[in-house]
Design a protein around this nucleic acid. Structure first.
Length: 553
RNA sequence: UGCCCGAUAGUAUAAAGGUAGUACAACGGUUUUUGGUACCGUUUGUCUAGGUUCGAAUCCUGGUCGGGCAACCA
């Protein structure tokens, strides 16, 4: 079962680098910007970066890329750390790009001194205009040939807070006619009189991504700086700064980001859903965020397995949600406690069961576990709740469940035969009458009766009430990003169904957060964070595969 | 109309010039006190046109298609 998985292209590069002696240890980093919550796409990057050093030795740093104080918050730093830990990874060093602001500033001064950077008072519009277009070369800024002394003087005064936001920028002096737009004298420092979540008001100039990321990698001696495809064209600049500064040569490698069907993956769009109240927050169980998946009941193991299975490559991809669901079912099937809950109840009366009598039955907790997960007591009595969809007045072909005259097994209990049913004025079935076979008790069945179907139930007198929330895909489109118009037009109006009164077996009254349950025949469920002992709230993580409903749509 | 990246079943991902494989999905079956799980089986693929070679998914050339690049965002 443990056959060698083939290497992805990054592992090949690393194995070659290690073999050739280019590096003796591997150092990677995960560099989120603390401006939002981490999502399943980040999980792919986390599993990659941390997984690589776990596999090859070395270590991984967590570095918050906090160069834009206006969008970054400590709340995000905290949530991101919690999510990474929950996924099961531990960083070697907790670092911040802002730790390097002094060094970065000195690097900028060095560039100016070497005639490789200049201050420019051109407006944003002017800079954009002179930049040219992808098909036309740009034009040198009129301020490009200022003296080194004057550049140094103004840059110092920028740092000292003498100018308003936007009055000046510091630009690298590279090549305004480069076919790579990023090499056309990119801005490396801009003035922002904004409080930074870590450095407060110490700085009023902040480095741009391109002037911070590669150098930060270099300072930490990151050997393999792994990022997503949209940074491919940044690599030339990344290498340029490292070469001009003559610092440790980190190298950047790019892989394709994760796209998942029926959701969106950009922090900007997820933030929009949160801000516009279209979801209950970053951790809404329908969100593709790590915190949302966690609340929904996904396990770290299942997410890691998913990231392993999707692979790492350079081509654009759109992974089917069904793979994620497969991974969580696979994990939960092995570990979750089986219980019975009736979500859409209809009353069943066992007419030949003595009035007022009840008995305690024993149910194994997990048939997949070696010890069957232990067992629990389940009360049984004359009146039960069963699932409305388990009865058909006129049975379909190959119907194994309840119908007039049909027999089924009540899970962990007796075989019953449907003798009659009652309808109200509007034709809705309100009650089902059955007789039971006393000698068919689960585990000691001597009845000799064979049944095709087994259904779940809860004793009416002993049932507890719980709220149950069922989730479906957040969007109706496989790829809301690529649809016409606003992505929000494709939100699934039925992405959440709330069942206010579901009946659960008494065992579940003691349910705890983070325990995963399988409601037999219905799916995997876990307690929501909204739950209280007085008002239990369960989330459905994912339904069970259902060959019946699939074939009968 | 410039530069860069990419193209293998429905979706992903392998095959480093030598049998196109695996997973998910779909479909069919066996087992089953969950129409779950497990197990077995089936269908479906190298973008295109040339070239190199005994032999090409793989190397070369042209084309096509998809994606990225013109934020004082990361």
């Amino acid at each position: 079962m443990s056959e060698e998985r083939s290497l992805n292209f990054i592992e090949e590069i690393i194995e070659n680098d290690l073999k050739s002696g280019k590096y003796k240890t591997l150092i990677t980093r995960f560099p989120p910007e603390p401006n939002g919550y981490l999502h399943i796409g980040h999980a792919k990057a986390i599993c990659l970066n941390f997984g690589l050093t776990k596999k090859y030795g070395g270590y991984t740093n967590l570095r918050f890329d906090d160069t834009n104080p206006v969008t970054e918050k400590t709340e995000y730093v905290d949530s991101q750390q919690a999510d990474i830990k929950w996924l099961g990874f531990q960083w070697e060093n907790e670092l911040y790009t802002s730790d390097y602001f002094d060094t970065l500033y000195n690097y900028a001064v060095k560039l100016v001194e070497n005639g490789l950077a200049y201050v420019d008072e051109s407006s944003a519009d002017e800079i954009a205009r002179l930049k040219g277009t992808p098909t036309e070369p740009g034009t040198d800024s009129p301020h490009r040939s200022r003296s080194i002394a004057e550049n140094l003087d103004i840059f110092t005064r920028m740092k000292n807070g003498e100018f308003a936001d936007g009055a000046y920028t510091l630009r690298a002096k590279i090549d305004m006619s480069s076919p790579n737009m990023l090499m056309r004298d990119p801005i490396v420092y801009r003035i922002k009189h904004a409080d930074h979540h870590r450095t407060g008001s110490t700085w009023c100039i902040y480095p741009m991504y391109d002037f911070a990321h590669g150098q930060s990698d270099s300072i930490e001696e990151i050997t393999h700086s792994i990022c997503t495809l949209e940074y491919v064209s940044h690599r030339e600049l990344y290498d340029w700064f490292i070469a001009q500064l003559n610092i440790f040569p980190s190298h950047q490698y790019e892989f394709a980001r994760l796209n998942l069907t029926y959701t969106v993956m950009s922090k900007r769009k997820l933030l929009q859903l949160v801000n516009e109240g279209l979801v209950s927050g970053w951790n809404d169980p329908r969100m593709p965020t790590i915190s949302g998946l966690r609340r929904r009941g996904y396990t770290p193991e299942s997410i890691r397995e998913f990231c392993e299975r999707i692979g790492i490559a350079k081509r654009e991809n759109l992974i089917e949600l069904s793979l994620l669901e497969f991974c969580v079912r696979e994990d939960l099937n092995k570990t979750s406690t089986r219980v019975m809950a009736v979500l859409d109840p209809i009353k069943m009366v066992i007419t030949n069961y003595p009035e007022g009598r009840s008995e305690v039955l024993i149910g194994e907790n997990n048939p997949e576990a070696e010890d069957k997960g232990g067992s629990r007591e389940i009360p049984f009595s004359k009146e039960l709740w069963i699932e409305r969809e388990d009865f058909m007045e006129v049975p379909a072909k190959k119907w194994f469940r309840l119908a007039p005259g049909a027999t089924v097994r009540l899970k962990h209990a007796y075989i019953v035969k449907c003798e009659d049913f009652i309808k109200d004025e509007s034709g809705i079935v309100t009650e089902i009458h059955c007789t039971y076979y006393p000698e068919s008790k689960s585990g000691e069945d001597t009845s000799g009766i064979n049944v095709k179907g087994t259904i779940h139930w809860v004793s009416k007198a002993h049932a507890k009430v719980a709220e149950v929330r069922l989730y479906d895909r957040l969007f109706t489109s496989e790829s809301p990003d690529s649809e016409e118009g606003d992505f929000k037009d494709y939100l699934n109006p039925n992405s959440m169904e709330v069942i206010k009164e579901a009946y659960i077996e008494p065992y579940l009254a003691d349910a705890t957060l983070d325990t995963r349950y399988q409601f037999i025949r219905k799916g995997y469920f876990t307690l929501d964070t909204d739950s209280t002992p007085e008002h239990l709230v369960f989330n459905r993580t994912v339904s069970l595969k259902d060959a019946w409903s699939k074939g009968n749509k």
